[in-house]
């Protein structure tokens, strides 16, 4: 058991093997997502099996879904949506949430109060209601879906970042920096951020999981991924009837989600210390 206090300097650049595994799995899904249209064995909408919830076979490697469509093809195409949309949305939510949160902590006063109350209000509007309004007002498209997912999670990211930054903001070195006459952007990005990056990354990881799961919920509100395509969460949802039979149609997309989300979090936990704990 080692801690940052006793670790020799050189070790901080080491990328642990668990982090490597996480990175490799993410890379794998990214490549799948990129190549998806070229490697699917069947068109995603085509019914290739007379039966439904079919088992794994040499013809259908991952069995068939509730309509008898090829699961392997559906999962491969689903990777595009789950990986792409979720990453974009989580970046939007966490980057803007953290930036606002830190700024609010450093600037304080009215800026803090108004921004905090505004985001509290935003968080209090039921997402089903806002989802329906957006679907009715601007219709559905991938950018709308990404912005929607991002906006839903900004208040949470903001609040967590702000609470971390408020703590750090009371430290002596921040006071020193401010009396030195440093501007707000400098204080935020050079003094606060490095000191809270660890928890922020953990927050990023958890939010990524939430977004992956919420994605399927928004598809049902008529936003985003349109048939015949489906993200992984939607695949689990539409095939949940296969659960009693242990159908691969419901098990495999669940495993795909778990593999992606666990990898992202393992990677974050095991980033080289140089990136993760710059304060140490």
């Amino acid at each position: 058991m080692t801690t940052s206090t006793t670790m020799p300097r050189g070790a901080r650049y080491r990328f642990s093997w668990i982090g490597m595994i996480g990175f490799a799995i993410i890379l794998f899904w990214a490549i799948i997502a990129f190549l998806a249209p070229h490697i699917i064995p069947y068109p995603v909408g085509e019914i290739v099996d007379e039966d439904y919830f079919g088992p794994m076979s040499s013809k259908l490697l991952l069995g068939s879904d509730y309509l008898g469509r090829d699961m392997l093809s559906r999962i491969i195409m689903g990777a595009r949506y789950t990986v792409g949309i979720s990453l974009a949305a989580v970046c939007l939510a966490c980057f803007s949430g953290a930036a606002f949160g830190m700024a609010a902590a450093v600037i304080g006063g009215w800026f803090d109060t108004i921004l905090s109350r505004f985001l509290d209000a935003l968080n209090s509007i039921p997402s089903k209601l806002s989802g329906l309004v957006i679907a009715a007002a601007v219709g559905s498209s991938l950018p709308v879906l990404i912005i929607m997912l991002g906006v839903i999670y900004i208040p949470g990211a903001y609040r967590f970042a702000r609470s971390l930054a408020v703590n750090v903001n009371t430290m002596d070195y921040i006071t020193v920096a401010r009396t030195r006459g440093e501007g707000i952007p400098y204080v935020v990005f050079s003094e606060i951020l490095p000191n809270i990056i660890g928890p922020l990354l953990a927050d990023f990881g958890i939010r990524f999981v939430f977004i992956v799961l919420l994605l399927s919920g928004l598809s049902f509100l008529g936003l985003g991924v349109q048939p015949p395509y489906a993200d992984w969460g939607a695949l689990v949802h539409e095939n949940i009837g296969g659960l009693p039979f242990g159908a691969p149609a419901v098990i495999v997309p669940s495993l795909a989600i778990a593999s992606l989300t666990i990898s992202v979090n393992l990677l974050i936990d095991n980033l080289p210390k140089k990136i993760r704990d710059r304060s140490a």
């Binding site: 085509e46 329906l132 679907a135 598809s219 008529g222 015949p228």
Partner: peptide, 20 residues
């Protein structure tokens, strides 16, 4: 999706829009 798939086989493109 079944109509969409049949269409794609003869060059007809259907833009399926699932609404709430």
């Amino acid at each position: 999706t079944i109509v969409q798939q049949s269409g794609s086989e003869i060059g007809m493109k259907f833009d399926v829009q699932r609404v709430p």
